[in-house]
Every structure is written in structure tokens, then in C-alpha cells.
């Protein structure tokens, strides 16, 4: 099956979703406000065995986080990007650990970098940033220059020490 067939298959079940094939072998799904675990379980059952990663995009102007799931099918050689928009002020989404156990780490990282809460993930403790006291740094409103001034007393306009 190529990406068009896959898109059709998904649309047959999820009629309201925006599913669009793109490039030669990718499919993009916008899945806001639906049961993300159910959708991904369905996708996995179509032969999308491999989760490449889970990540997040901060659309600050739209007040939305897009949680991104990149999945790949070794069977069909097709890639699916699932984007699930969530409220930026109350970022919560269920974990997909039950489908791919390694999602635990990606979710932990996304929680640390964006502050997205993955409900059901047992360990969302900080992974990379030690003693972090600021807002999650990959959010668009985190200003690196301001931070280095605040945290390290940087003096130059670029945030270094002149």
C-alpha cells in the first residue's frame, strides 16, 4: 500500500480527521481532541510498528501545543506524522507507552522541554536539565538571552560576558 491507500484506510474509519498524503511516502494526520491512544493503536494495527519519536511544537500565537508522533511502517514503507493539538494553558495528553514502551523516554523529554503532561506515564522527572527552575526551555516564550542574563549575570546584549 502506498501513502494514498493508507490515507484512505484511515479516513474510512476516522471520517472527521484531516488526513493528507504528502511527499512520496508520508501521511499527515491532524488529530485534535480525539482519543490519541485509540488512533495510534489503530494505526499500529495497520502495520505501523515503529515509533520514530514523540515530540512537540509550540504554536504560541494559536495558544496550542502540537504533540507529534512520527511512526513508520516497515511493512508498507510509509511514514505517518500524527499531530495532536492540545491547549497550551493546560497541556495534557494520555501516554502511548502501552503501544510503544520507549515512548516513556520521549514523553519524559517532551514534558521537560515543553511542560506537556502525559497522563499515565509513571516517570516524568527531569531527564536532561539539572536543577532547572525556569519555564520549559523549548517553549517559544523562553528567551535564551534573558535567561543567561538572569541565571548567569551575563552582561553583553547577546547574552555572553564581554
Amino acid at each position: 500500500m502506498n501513502n494514498n491507500d493508507i490515507a484512505e484506510k484511515i479516513k474510512a474509519v476516522y471520517k472527521d480527521l484531516e488526513v493528507k498524503p504528502k511527499y512520496s511516502n508520508q501521511v499527515e494526520i491532524r488529530a485534535d481532541g480525539i482519543d490519541i491512544v485509540g488512533l495510534l493503536a489503530f494505526i499500529k494495527s495497520l502495520g505501523f510498528e515503529h515509533l520514530s519519536n514523540v515530540t512537540c511544537v509550540d504554536w504560541i500565537k494559536e495558544k496550542r501545543f502540537d504533540v507529534i508522533y512520527n511512526v513508520w511502517s516497515y511493512t508498507h514503507k510509509v511514514h505517518i506524522t500524527v499531530k495532536s493539538g492540545i491547549d497550551r494553558d493546560n497541556p495534557e495528553i494520555p501516554t502511548v507507552m502501552s503501544l510503544w514502551p520507549q515512548a516513556q523516554v520521549y514523553e519524559r523529554e517532551t514534558h521537560e522541554m515543553f511542560g506537556v503532561k502525559f497522563l499515565g506515564n509513571p516517570d516524568l522527572s527531569p531527564l536532561f536539565l539539572h536543577n532547572w527552575k525556569d519555564i520549559p526551555p523549548l517553549r517559544k516564550d523562553f528567551d535564551t538571552v534573558e535567561y543567561s542574563k538572569r541565571a548567569y549575570g551575563a552582561s553583553s546584549p547577546e547574552g555572553g560576558n564581554e
Partner: peptide, 28 residues
């Protein structure tokens, strides 16, 4: 893997890197 998001500007809007070591190194 590189997941790249552009808002049409001269700089990337978001780049997310999928490194091959993560599943083994941090999960397995």
C-alpha cells in the same frame, strides 16, 4: 531522523532530532 517545522521564515520554527541511540541508551 529530523523532524523540521517551518513557518515560512528564514529560520526553522522547530527542529526535533531523533537520535538512534535513544531507545537503547535511555530505555532498553
Amino acid at each position: 531522523g529530523y523532524y523540521i517545522v517551518s513557518d515560512g521564515g528564514i529560520r526553522p520554527y522547530r527542529i526535533s532530532v531523533r537520535g538512534p541511540s535513544l531507545p537503547a541508551g535511555l530505555y532498553l
